[in-house]
Write a protein that binds this DNA or RNA. Structure first.
Lengths: 323, 323
DNA sequence: TTTTGCCATAGGTACGAAGTATTGGACAGG
DNA sequence: CCTGTCCAATACTTCGTACCTATGGCAAAA
C-alpha cells in the first residue's frame, strides 16, 4: 500500500500545497497542469484519503494532507542527506564539466545551463570556455571540452545535438530611423542597408545559410561590417553603419529597436553539442534535466526539427533563443 | 539528482543487500532477475557510486551502499508510519472485503489471495463466503459480495474476470486399479468408468463444457455419481464407484493416484471475478498486487505454461479459458 | 566434460506518467 | 447579461522506462 507513495508524489503534494494552486505548482515543477491534477487525484485514490479541498481559486490542503506534507518535507530532506553522505563516503570527485559557448548564444541560456548543472551536481565545477563555432567544434572533436552551446547548423557529423527552441531574426535599427515607425519592414527596404554581420569565419555554415535566405527574398548580402559579438553589433548599428539582424527578444541598447521583416520568418537554433567521447559523467543527468525543463530534443546530427510548444514560464523569462 | 532515487530503489537495494544475491532478491520482490540487475546498475549509474562488489556467488554491498541501506530502512519505516498517521487522521474505516470462493477452487489460491489482501490492507477484514458457482454469481450480481474466486467459464456477462491459474485435469483412480500401472491412460479406457462428477447444477457451464470435451475424444459423459466437494469425489473413487477428473497437483487421499490422459490436455481455470459495482476500495490494489505476484509463477510445480496466461484480459469475458 | 548457479546483455512489451486539447464552473468587468 | 479570465477536471495521445523473456559468459562443483 505504501509502495504507491514515492518521493515524487510527496514532492508534488508539497508543491501543490505550498502554491495553493495546481497550475502554479505545475509550472514550478516543470509539468503540465493536467498531469499534476491527475497525480494528485491518483494519490488521494491510492491513500483513500481526501488531500485537498478544491474551490474556485485553488486548492487547500486537508489536515491529513498537512501531516503528509510536513512528514514529506522531512523525508525529502533525509533522502538528500542520505545520498550526499553515501556519495561523500565514496569520495566521488568529479572532473570539471568543460563547457564551451559561442558568444552568439544567448547568455541567459548559458547561465541556465550552468545553473541547472550546479543544482544537479553541486560538487562538480564548470570550466567554461568561449570562442567561435569553428574553434569550439575543434575542441569538441579533440575532446578538450565535454559539450558546447552553439548556433546551428554545424558542420561535421557524428555530434550529438540537442537543439533548443527556435527564435526569430529581426532587424535591428536606431529608434530614430525613419523605418522604425513601421511595425514591419519590407524585405526590399533592407537592400543595401543590411550591412552588419557577424564575422563569417566564426561560423561559415550559418553565414552561408543566412546569405541564402537573404537571396531568396532578393537581397544581396552586403557584408560591409563584420564583428564578433552581439554587443559590438549593436554598437555598430548605433553608430549608423546600417542595419543588422538580431535575435528577437534579445536585450537591446537604448536607442535601438527591432522590427520583424514582412513575409519571412528567419530563425536560428541554439543547441547543446556533445563531444564525441566524453568521460564526463554528469552529461546524461544534465541532458535529462534540460529536456524536462526546456523540452529539449535529440537529433542525430544537425537536422532541425519542429519544436514542441515552449513552456510558458520560459517565454516569460525571455529564454527563447536562436533556433 | 536525488530525484533519481525513489523509495522503490531503496527497497530493491535493501533486498539485494540482505539476500547477497540478486536472483534471490528478485524472487523475494516478485521480479525477474534481469530487471533487478538493471535496476541496481542504474542506481549505481545515477549516484555515480559503486554499490556492490560482484563475485562468482553473489554480490556484496560496499560501504557507501551500507549507508544507503541503513538510511533507506529508516526512510521506508518513516514513510509507512507517515502514511499510517495521515490515514488515521482521516479515520478511514474499511468496509470488510466480502470474498466468495467456490469449493472447486484450489484452497491454496484462496489463502494466497487472502494473505495478499491482508498484507496490503491490514485494517481491512475479509468476510469470506463459500458456495457453488451459481450461488456466488448471484451474490456478485446482487452486490452482496465484492469478488469471488470461481472456476471458469462463467455465465452472465459484464463481470470483470481475472483468470489466473490454468491447471490440467487428470484422472483420479485407486492405486490398486489395473490401469494405475500405466503412466498415461488412453481416452478409450475411460469409457463407462469415468462416472463421478461434480454436481452439474453447481456449475452448469463448466459441466457442459466438460461433457463436450469428453465427447470430442469419443467418451460419453456418464454421470452416475454426483457430489459437491473435491473431498467427496475422492471418497467416491475410494469406494470403487469409478474414476473422476481432478486438478493435477491437488492433494490426494492415500490409496489414490492420478494419471494424465493420453493426447489431450484438458485444463481448468480459476479466476477472480469482480462484482459489477463494488464500493470496495481495496479491489484495485489487490488486483494490482496479485498480477505482480502471480506473473512470476513460472516455476512452482507445473509443466511449462504460457507465462502470460496469468495476465488478465479484461475484454475477454470467458471462452478462451477452457482449452 | 557437463552441469549448476551466478550476473549481464539484448530486444521487446506494456503500463504509467507525461503531454495536448478541450470542457465546465465560478466569478468579475464592461 | 454576456464575455473574458482563471481555475480544475476530462479525454484523448505519446513517450519513457520498468519489466518481461531469452540468451550468453563465467566460475566452481559434479
Amino acid at each position: 500500500m505504501s509502495d504507491l507513495v514515492e518521493f515524487r508524489n510527496l514532492k508534488y503534494l508539497i508543491a501543490v500545497a505550498e502554491e495553493g494552486n495546481i497550475t502554479r505548482a505545475a509550472k514550478r515543477l516543470y509539468l503540465a497542469q493536467p498531469s499534476l491534477s491527475t497525480q494528485m487525484r491518483g494519490l488521494e485514490e491510492a491513500l483513500q484519503v481526501p488531500l485537498f479541498i478544491r474551490d474556485r481559486n485553488g486548492v487547500h490542503a486537508t489536515p491529513a494532507a498537512e501531516i503528509l506534507i510536513t512528514g514529506g518535507r522531512e523525508l525529502l530532506k533525509l533522502r538528500d542527506g542520505l545520498i550526499a553522505t553515501a556519495r561523500a563516503l565514496h569520495r566521488v570527485t568529479f572532473t570539471p564539466m568543460r563547457l564551451g559557448f559561442s558568444s552568439f548564444v544567448d547568455h541567459a541560456l548559458y547561465e541556465m545551463v550552468c545553473s541547472v548543472h550546479t543544482s544537479l551536481f553541486p560538487e562538480c565545477e564548470i570550466a567554461s570556455r568561449s570562442g567561435d563555432n569553428v574553434e569550439l567544434l575543434l575542441l569538441l572533436q579533440k575532446g578538450e571540452i565535454d559539450a558546447a552551446l552553439l548556433a546551428l547548423p554545424i558542420s561535421g557529423s557524428g555530434f550529438k545535438t540537442y537543439p533548443f527552441t527556435k527564435s526569430r531574426l529581426v532587424v535591428c535599427m536606431k529608434s530614430d530611423d525613419p523605418l522604425a515607425r513601421l511595425k514591419e519592414i519590407a524585405p526590399a527596404e533592407l537592400q543595401a542597408k543590411l550591412t552588419i554581420f557577424q564575422e563569417p569565419k566564426q561560423h561559415p555554415e550559418a553565414h552561408l545559410r543566412l546569405m541564402e535566405m537573404l537571396d531568396e527574398v532578393g537581397i544581396r548580402g552586403d557584408v560591409a561590417s563584420k564583428t564578433t559579438t552581439p554587443h559590438n553589433i549593436q554598437w555598430m548599428v548605433e553608430s549608423g553603419q546600417g542595419y543588422a539582424l538580431v535575435r528577437e527578444g534579445s536585450e537591446m541598447h537604448v536607442g535601438l529597436v527591432t522590427r520583424p521583416v514582412t513575409g519571412v520568418t528567419w530563425t536560428v537554433d541554439s543547441a547543446l553539442i556533445l563531444g564525441k567521447s566524453t568521460s564526463q559523467k554528469t552529461v546524461p543527468g544534465l541532458i535529462r534535466e534540460l529536456r524536462k525543463r526546456l523540452r529539449l530534443q535529440v537529433s542525430p546530427s544537425s537536422v532541425s526539427k519542429p519544436p514542441r510548444s515552449v513552456r510558458p514560464d520560459i517565454e516569460d523569462e525571455n529564454l527563447r533563443l536562436f533556433a
